[in-house]
């Protein structure tokens, strides 16, 4: 009888522990900070099909940047970390003219205009007040945060995405410069 009881208890323990581990295993992505998945090429059409204008009203069809390595930086004037990183991005843009650098402002044209007066950058700042966040989301910004930076290869593939503040070093190494 004692033996039966031991076997029953062992089996019960194994079932309980086993199902516990199985649950942990099935939900492991919840526990581990998984690599953010990169959006695939099909999502890039949203970028290529967009036409945006800068704060002065000049329009830019984004398809013209196809075939170049590209940095797309989503920002806003009310976002302090965004403003912090912009001088560094600007330095990189002037050092590497072969890279297309775009700043997409989730902001009003007037605010961007005022900001550029005090902090000029060498790359175009395009106004995407309404379409900016949905576009960023299509390009992998599932957290809806700013700043958000996407690195696109010359082949039109997204190779890196960055949530939050980036540095010149992070961008250079992402682009193998």
């Amino acid at each position: 009888m004692r033996k039966v009881a031991s076997i029953v208890m062992t089996v019960l323990l194994m079932v309980v522990l086993g199902s516990g581990f199985r649950w942990l295993y099935l939900n492991r992505h919840q526990f581990l900070a998984t690599e953010a998945t990169l959006p695939d090429e099909s999502h890039m059409n949203a970028l290529w099909n967009a036409t945006l204008s800068d704060q002065k009203g000049k329009t830019y069809p984004l398809a013209q940047f196809k075939g170049k390595p590209m940095i797309v930086n989503f920002w806003a004037t009310w976002c302090e970390p965004c403003r912090e990183e912009m001088p560094e991005i600007s330095e990189l843009a002037s050092a590497h003219p072969e890279v297309a650098v775009l700043g997409l402002a989730v902001d009003e044209a007037a605010a961007v205009h005022e900001f550029v007066e005090s902090t000029p950058v060498v790359y175009p700042l395009l106004i995407a007040e309404n379409e900016g966040m949905p576009l960023a989301e299509t390009l992998g910004n599932n957290k809806g945060v700013l700043p958000y930076t996407v690195i696109v290869s010359a082949q039109g593939e997204i190779t890196h995405i960055f949530f939050g503040r980036v540095s010149r070093k992070m961008l250079s190494s992402a682009l193998n410069l």
Binding site: M1, R2, A5, S6, I7, V8, M9, L13, V16, S19
Partner: peptide
Amino acid sequence: PAALIAGALIFVALSFSMFGFYELKLPSV
């Protein structure tokens, strides 16, 4: 359902020990 069934089975096992079918103990090892 799996968790519920497992829970119910454990209760059944416990109740059998209450009826004296066996003594509930950790495996002797």
